[in-house]
């Protein structure tokens, strides 16, 4: 797999976010065994040291756990996964709000613009559904 990394952000950070995303979306399930450091390094085409660091940090956050001699596994704690989902959503929204503010939008304008866009998107999906029939 070829992932395009953004070189200005720490690579380990970007990989942690990719793995978290895979957990939230259910691509990795609670209790699943993670790839070995070598395999993961191969997958993302990065230095194995970067992956070691990723694994250490994921474990520190209790997102994964290691069983001696068995490997690293995804947490089976559903609350943890939910918490992760909320954390990632918060961070997306946080960035979005900052961007909108930098464009000069006020709080109510930001909320209105979200509402408008959600409705528009829903309509366009519905219309597409109709025209397909």
């Amino acid at each position: 797999m070829n992932i395009e990394f953004n070189n200005k952000e720490p690579i380990y950070h970007q990989i942690i976010n990719l793995i978290k995303k895979d957990i939230i979306t259910g691509r990795y399930k609670g209790g699943d065994k993670m790839l070995s450091v070598r395999e993961m390094a191969e997958k993302y085409k990065v230095n194995p040291n970067t992956i070691s660091r990723v694994y250490q940090l994921l474990e520190m956050e209790n997102i994964t756990y290691t069983q001696r001699g068995m490997g690293t596994f995804i947490t089976q704690d559903e609350d943890k996964i939910l918490q992760l989902k909320n954390q990632m959503a918060d961070s997306v929204i946080h960035n979005f709000i900052n961007e909108m503010r930098s464009l000069g939008f006020e709080n109510t304008e930001i909320i209105n613009s979200i509402k408008k866009n959600i409705v528009q998107q829903a309509e366009s999906i519905q219309n597409k559904g109709v025209s397909d029939q």
Binding site: N7, K8, E9, P10, I11, Y12, H13, T50
Partner: peptide, 15 residues
């Protein structure tokens, strides 16, 4: 360390 430099400066090593 590369990732350290990136997060300190918000920049790629190239930049």
């Amino acid at each position: 360390e590369c990732d350290h430099l990136r997060s300190n400066r918000g920049m790629s090593i190239e930049n």
